[in-house]
């Protein structure tokens, strides 16, 4: 055992918790090493000095002040007792336990997943059906069944497909009303021909 290793065992030796083999090694080293002997003696003295520090007493008003503070806590709305007796709080307390919290999260996930998969169509239709009335310029109506109204109304549809800005940029000879609709979509990129 060297000096550093011996130092690691100072507390254990002081408290008599070293196993026999380590004790032999420690005391063997201390018998040979004068520096460690001195250091260990100083170690014992400083521990003793700390343990002999006087106890600090609370003031005589400690209890009365505490009682006042507790009374204030109880009077406040939503205080200890009020909270403890509220049923929703008791319910929330249940979910502080990991098992209950995990179960709650699983139920929530299953509910959302179930709702999603039980629908006939996905919530967000990736391929909207073509609308019977293609352009507004022809005076035809856009289909407004409840199913399509939600998703398809905001889109501008031409020739049974979605109307993209690139379509219009490459076809400058569109009727005025169609171009006007395009400007609503992206008027910053589209050619405005001097207007807007």
């Amino acid at each position: 055992m060297n000096c550093l290793q011996a130092e690691e065992h100072f507390s254990a030796h002081l408290e008599d918790t070293l196993d026999y083999q380590t004790l032999q090694g420690f005391e063997g080293h201390l018998g040979e090493c004068e520096v460690c002997q001195q250091e260990y003696a100083r170690f014992q003295e400083s521990v003793k000095a700390v343990q002999e520090l006087p106890q600090i007493e609370p003031s005589p008003y400690f209890m009365s002040t505490l009682q006042q503070r507790l009374a204030t806590e109880q009077r406040e709305p939503g205080s200890v007792k009020a909270i403890a007796t509220t049923s929703w709080k008791q319910l929330l307390d249940l979910f502080r336990r990991p098992k209950w919290a995990f179960s709650g999260i699983m139920v929530l996930i299953l509910t959302v997943a179930g709702t999603y998969f039980y629908q006939e169509r996905p919530l967000f239709d990736q391929n909207p059906r073509p609308v019977s009335g293609t352009t507004m310029s022809q005076g035809e109506q856009i289909t407004t069944s409840p199913e399509t109204l939600r998703i398809e109304l905001p889109r501008f549809v031409r020739n049974s497909r979605q109307f993209a800005p690139s379509d219009v940029l490459s076809t400058p000879t569109q009727p005025m009303q169609q171009r006007y609709m395009l400007k609503q979509v992206s008027y910053t990129n589209a050619s405005t021909s001097g207007g807007l």
Partner: peptide, 8 residues
């Protein structure tokens, strides 16, 4: 043990 050594 480390705390006691520091204190020493």
């Amino acid at each position: 043990n480390r705390a006691r050594l520091m204190l020493k």
